[in-house]
Amino acid sequence: MKQFRLIFFLVLVASIQTAKAQSLKFATIPAGRYQVGAKRSLINPERKINLPAFEIAVTEVTNSQFAAFVAATGYITDAERKHNALVFEPGLAEFRWLEDSTACWRYPNGISRGGISSKMDHPVTTISFSDAEAYCTWAGCRLPTLDEWEVASRAGANTRYFWGNNREGIRKYANIWYGRDHTTADSTDGYMYTSPVASFKPNGYGLYDMYGNVFEFCEGKTATDKKDSKLVHARGGSWWCSKNSCNYFNSVDIGTQNRHASFSNQGFRVVKAPSPGQER
């Protein structure tokens, strides 16, 4: 009887691991010496780094994938626990967000603005850095480091964007905001909020949505972080980002955030463990 239980348990674990692996596709970023940062940037100064090869998900983690995690673990997100998620609706002044006690990953901009039943292939949002870490622990992966994210996003380029320095190229590659401000709705690229992952063209490594859809949480500290800082970082752009607001849809800028803050333009993609420096 004990043997039967053990076999059942092992089969269950194996099938869960298989399901996790099947739901995420990865691209291999080769080992190498890479240039990152920008000349004279304070937060992300230009430098050369050595990186071992790593495997990064080609898309951001979707609602469907996050739902599997919640179903398996019963995990409760920061927004569900604190009821303090920040959401968007057209009409807000620049950089203003609405606090909505009903918002969480199931209702990214609050119950009145709709759920995710028809958006299971969109990136999960209205989750915090802490929530993303919990997902990674369950899925046996981790968040990319700041350097890994940048190398993956550059796809071999040393320019601000993986296609060069002309911002106009963004239209093919990312779901961003084209309105002059956020007082009126903008769906110029077909989407006001998130789009299904991989709706736009990938970069040279086959990675989708590196500059748009949702900001992506990364591990690590920046050159300007205080030694004991508990703040975290996210990179790339999001559906909210416009050329007139923050311009963060590029390979250089690094945003800063509280690890428990939940916004409807924040999400993540994962990297297969092990961590840099860990024995392979």
């Binding site: 950089f95 999001s238 980002c241 800028d253 924040q266």
Partner: peptide, 12 residues
């Protein structure tokens, strides 16, 4: 009382 979003509108 509330969080600000990820991006810093004004880099140095």
């Amino acid at each position: 009382e509330i969080y600000s979003q990820n991006c810093d509108p004004m880099p140095p």
